[in-house]
Design a protein around this nucleic acid. Structure first.
Length: 445
RNA sequence: GGAGAGUUGGCCGAGUGGUCGAAGGCGCACGCCUGGAAAGUGUGUAAGCUCCAAAAGGGCUUCAUGGGUUCGAAUCCCAUGCUCUCCGCCA
């Protein structure tokens, strides 16, 4: 009854983030090694060995760095003296110093190479450590272990001959999967007539609701460069999830989160800039290599789909308050669409690599008799910010990492699937009241 | 796509081989002045890594990015990105 059990959160959530290398702050690990190990145990992650190795390498790194710095300092001094000697015509003495400098240079090269190697090894280890889950994270390994924290709405009683959405789509000629195959391939459906209009209605509805809630609307590029891919952590794991435009070295975005969050890459905010709240609609592109079976039937999993994403940047002190705000916002959307839904809190084992706390939203698809994940709302704390160097200046004038949060609000395909299936009647498919101003019709027939 | 010009700190802008992390200005912060404000005036004002118990202070790196020349590079050379101008093409 669950969408899948890959151990990684299902897609539509930003699972592309999971694969990857955001990372914990080295200083934090250095100062709290045991805490890191204990906390990661909540994610069923055995960090002991890696942490110890990291601490070792870090010592080596600092020693090497010191040697290199001293070397460079001497070189700098020599260069300065040589200049002075030349000016006063003391060629011979200058030559002597030049010789010394040449020696230093060889040593520096060696030290530099060694440092680079150490650094690389350190990074390779650092990126294997997931974000620390919040201490209250429920234990568990599987989706079955995710506690339900809220449930709303009644599951409708459908006629015995109720159809799954892919058949309804054909019956009313609103989504054409075959045609998509002709044009592109599987997973690229063509929306037609009222189906297309429904897409547009949902997008506008979602964006409008977010703007009402104080989010600034952003229309980002649908392709990003390499730096942005690294910024949110999709890279270096590029091949697995993202489409790549080789000629210009651009990546098609798997979620608006990538361009939107990267707006703040290398940015130092002022405290009064908080909270930063952005909303963006975008098409999303995912290769979804390795998926198969009923998980990909119809709208359940697509290579191209539409999503409205909300992103917040917060002061560490109130990021969890923001998480609850976002949860309530998303709940409001599903409620207005009159879909039965539940919210689950992901257990340690089911949480994404980057997340510290995640709520998943699932709507019930009556004809498929299963819950479909439609949103994932997460607090990443400083994990993404560390990688992106997203900071703010606190009251002491010191720079600190900000907290980042995001959530789907919402992803369209599974919402459409649930709407079609749950609202089917002998007369046609009923459009929820909140959406009618956007669709301009009340019934798909 | 072709030709040319450019790319310096939060912003503007000087700097064509040596003491430049970078003049000057703006902005910002704090102080003086003022009944209060403006004006004026003084001081300060990048980030990362690192040394130090910490503070103070010190070292290293960074003038688009990556490489190179040199004892020494913001400054010279090469490649790339980006911006602007002209031509071409075009929704």
């Amino acid at each position: 009854m669950y969408p899948q059990t890959t151990g990684i959160a299902p897609s539509y959530t930003d699972s592309s983030l999971l694969i990857i290398p955001d990372m914990l702050e080295l200083n934090f690990i250095r100062e709290n090694p045991q805490l890191v190990i204990d906390r990661l145990a909540l994610k069923n992650f055995k960090a002991g060995e890696a942490v110890n190795r990291i601490l070792e390498i870090d010592i080596n790194r600092r020693e090497t760095q010191k040697l290199l710095d001293d070397n460079l300092a001497e070189s700098n001094n020599i260069a300065r003296e040589v200049g002075i000697l030349f000016k006063s015509g003391k060629q011979a003495e200058a030559q002597e110093l030049k010789n010394r400098s040449a020696e230093l240079k060889i040593a520096a090269k060696e030290l530099g190479d060694r440092l680079e190697e150490i650094q690389k090894e350190l990074n390779n280890l650092l990126v294997t450590l997931p974000n620390l889950p919040h201490p209250t994270t429920p234990p568990g390994r599987l989706p079955e272990d995710n506690p339900e924290v809220q449930r709303e709405g009644d599951i409708p009683e459908l006629a015995v001959d109720a159809l799954p959405h892919w058949e309804l789509a054909t019956k009313y000629d609103i989504i054409d999967f075959e045609l998509g195959v002709k044009l592109t391939g599987a997973g690229f459906p063509v929306y037609k007539g009222k189906g297309a209009r429904l897409q547009r209605a949902l997008i506008n509805f979602f964006v409008d609701e977010a703007v009402k809630a104080g989010y600034i609307e952003i229309q980002p590029p649908l392709m990003v460069n390499e730096a942005s891919g690294y910024g949110t952590g999709q890279l270096p794991d590029k091949d697995s999830q993202m489409y790549f435009v080789g000629e210009d070295k651009f990546y098609l975005i798997p979620t608006a989160e990538v361009p939107v969050t990267n707006i703040y890459r290398d940015v130092i905010l002022k405290t009064e800039d908080f909270p930063v709240k952005n909303v963006a609609y975008s098409s999303c592109f995912r290769r979804e290599a390795g998926s198969y079976g009923k998980d990909v039937r119809g709208l359940n999993r697509l290579h191209q789909f539409d999503k409205v994403e909300i992103v917040q940047l917060r002061h560490p002190d109130d990021s969890y308050q923001a998480l609850e705000e976002m949860r309530e916002h998303v709940a409001g959307l599903v409620r207005k669409l009159e879909l039965p839904f539940r919210i689950i809190r992901l257990c340690g084992g089911d949480m994404s690599f980057t997340s510290a706390w995640t709520y998943d939203f699932e709507v019930y698809s009556t004809a498929q008799k299963r819950w479909l994940e439609v949103s994932s709302v997460s607090n990443f704390e400083t994990f993404q910010a560390n990688r992106m160097k997203l900071r703010f200046r606190d009251s002491n004038g010191k720079t600190r990492l900000a907290h980042t949060l995001n959530g789907s609000a919402l992803a369209l395909p599974r919402i459409v699937a649930a709407l079609l299936e749950n609202n089917q009647t002998p007369e046609g498919i009923r459009i929820p009241k909140a959406l009618v101003p956007y669709t301009g019709f009340e019934l798909i027939s």
